[in-house]
Design a protein around this nucleic acid. Structure first.
Lengths: 217, 217
DNA sequence: TGATGAAAATGAATATGATTCGTTTATGAA
DNA sequence: TTCATAAACGAATCATATTCATTTTCATCA
């Protein structure tokens, strides 16, 4: 029964299970919250999906809110990774942005829950393209390499990108999103850089939405 | 006791009380939600502030969520009104934007609840100014008068502005805002155009934050 | 002026779901 | 093998959104 030689570190197995549990919880919460929204996702459902007891969740996260933040963190991290792939693949970062906007808009026009909010979506989206789109993220990478950012942490740049898209998306839907959809939106934004297994070549082959010409300066 | 001659419409008094109740509820909810956030604001507390019974709220709003949306709607309306004042007063719409960013940043560095999220705020804010700020809203008014927007409803433009600021604010705070702070943020953005009674002259006299030079195209 | 019924208000009761906590189980060291 | 500690557990607690049977308000009209 003695198996200590398998564990060079004394806390090996415990640490491993803890990491597994934490990851499983975030994954389960991410799936459920992205599907139904943060409010509708119950802690019991999340615990069951992660195969732990209801009380165990609170050994890893102080509250549901803290868990939701961890989920958002994880989504943002993944989003950053994928945006990186896209910007490595495409020349014009503005296209990345357009891609994101279009993805959100497509989702919104498809999802019946958003339908009623979107009677003016086409018109507003067009306005958004024309004003924010071409400007906000254009030459994002160039701005970074030209040292226009003082902050060296690239994660901040992805945050900036993602959250600006979220802000713009709220404008698309008239600001009447269900109040807890932040996680849902970010989860959907992941589509913008394709699925996880997709190669850079496949990404490059994806059809991009047309970007209206930038207003002349 | 007959007072029918005071009421040209038969439902005069009822309609008046209904309007008063609805307004009182939105006002109470707005105060409490802006103070503590949507989640922490309880329906009972809101009802008590509005001087109605707990059940009465549900005669006016189907759910807490619907009430929160009405509150956001009301805040956005007020915000639009005030942005209009500011844009009428100042020549450069970019300054309006900078004003908004600075207000959010000031609030965030002052409010102890946000303190821990803001260790990188100064650096990030600078990056935000330099990338989004000068571009996103620059010549907003000119864009409108040049017919660059197809949508004629000016409310959409204020939405776009406000929500972009919200998105950018999220970037400022690293995206780690309490999950239900949307109403809080909009409420604070109201400061950006000064208090309700402030005149256009007083607004013009307010010190504006410096706007970094726009990156050359 | 008082009676009448529909609309609105009420708050006690219900339902849901986050969180706590006393108990049980698993783990690593001695 | 035994012990001490840490983690897991889920039933019980608690907070609060929502419902609903009852009461109150009020415009109408005899």
């Amino acid at each position: 029964m003695i198996e200590s030689e398998d564990n060079p570190k004394p806390e090996g197995r415990v640490a491993r299970r803890q990491r597994r549990n934490r990851t499983a919880l975030i994954t389960a919460a991410r799936d459920i919250m992205a599907e139904k929204g943060v409010d509708a996702a119950t802690m019991l459902e999340i615990a069951e999906h992660a195969d732990v007891g209801a009380g165990t969740v609170y050994n890893y996260f102080k509250s549901k809110d803290e868990l939701a933040i961890a989920v958002l963190e994880s989504l943002m991290h993944e989003l950053g990774r994928r945006i990186e792939m896209v910007t490595d693949t495409f020349d014009d970062p503005a296209q990345v942005y357009a891609f994101g906007i279009r993805t959100v808009l497509d989702t919104a026009t498809t999802d019946p829950r958003w339908e009623q909010m979107l009677h003016r979506a086409e018109v507003i989206a067009d306005a958004m393209y024309r004003t924010i789109g071409p400007f906000a993220i254009r030459d994002l990478k160039n701005a970074v390499s030209a040292g226009r950012f003082r902050e060296s942490d690239p994660a901040m740049i992805w945050r900036l990108t993602a959250h600006t898209i979220i802000g713009a998306s709220l404008a698309v839907t008239g600001g009447e999103l269900p109040s807890d959809s932040k996680v849902q939106i970010v989860a959907r934004l992941l589509c913008m850089a394709g699925s996880d297994g997709e190669s850079a070549e496949e990404l490059a082959a994806r059809p991009l939405p047309e970007l209206p010409p930038a207003p002349s300066e």
